[in-house]
């Protein structure tokens, strides 16, 4: 008898796919499944079904904010590499222009805005009305993104975990043109997304300034920024 259950029996195939997705297979078995998947649509389909069944379990795992180094590192790798398709085009724009190298804050702001416009082209998306990229003043490294899908609420989203000395806190400020001075939006924990209602303030306006400054653990004692600016950016309206 040359009966090979894992090749002919749909139940055995599904069991193998289930174990692969669950993660219990050893290195050799995993490699064998991955190689076979590429040529076996039945196995691929069984794996896809198991991925869809089990993927909600990832949401049981507590999130772990990445260090502030991770995104710049990913960006450097992307800049150094070319995608497989484009590597062939020796004289394509991708290779001719070191376009992504040293991506400036302005460049990133523009691309985020363009991306938001692009995303809003989908009818399901309610586009952020304003976007702000907050960068470190010394090296222009982006640290936070602010999204405002309306003019009364904003979300401050970290791109990494900013380092804050234990006896200090980050305070979030905004100032629009014509205001006497910056208004505090509260303290911010490194690595955490923060939603801020702007109900007590005038609606967001283009070019409105946002910044994070280093203050004492309870924030600035005088209601105005006293410490050094850690991240700064201005609101850009999304058309």
């Amino acid at each position: 008898m040359t009966f090979k259950p894992d090749q002919n029996d749909p139940n055995a195939l599904d069991a193998l796919a289930g174990e692969y997705v669950l993660g219990t297979l050893n290195a050799e078995q995993r490699q064998a499944v991955e190689q076979r998947m590429a040529q076996d649509p039945m196995l691929q389909a069984a794996v896809d079904r198991w991925e869809a069944r089990l993927v909600p379990l990832n949401d049981l795992v507590p999130p772990h904010p990445p260090s502030a180094r991770l995104w710049p590192r990913i960006e450097r790798s992307l800049n150094a590499a070319t995608s497989p398709d484009k590597a062939k085009e020796q004289h394509g724009w991708w290779n001719l222009l070191p376009l992504w190298r040293g991506l400036s804050a302005a460049g990133l702001a523009a691309t985020v805005v363009l991306g938001t416009v692009l995303l809003s082209a989908s009818p399901k998306v309610s586009p952020p009305a304003y976007v702000v990229v907050l960068v470190a003043p010394q090296n222009q490294a982006p640290g936070w993104v602010i999204q405002a899908s309306n003019r009364q609420n904003i979300q401050l989203i970290p791109l990494g975990v900013a380092h804050v000395p234990s006896d200090k806190a980050l305070e979030f400020w905004t100032k629009a043109e014509g205001w006497d001075g910056p208004v505090s939006l509260g303290l911010v924990k490194p690595g955490q997304t923060l939603s801020v209602p702007l109900d007590s303030l005038p609606p967001l306006e283009p070019n409105q300034l946002f910044e994070l400054t280093l203050e004492g653990p309870n924030g600035s004692p005088i209601g105005k920024p006293t410490g050094p600016i850690q991240f700064i950016g201005r609101a850009v309206k999304v058309i």
Binding site: V61, H64, L78, G115, I157, P158
Partner: peptide
């Protein structure tokens, strides 16, 4: 399509959860 800002958006949204996993 090669639009880097979309990856930035995914990173902002899911990097902490992916790192947890």
């Amino acid at each position: 399509r090669g639009e880097r800002q979309a990856l930035v958006a995914l990173y902002a949204k899911e990097s902490a959860r992916l790192l947890g996993v």
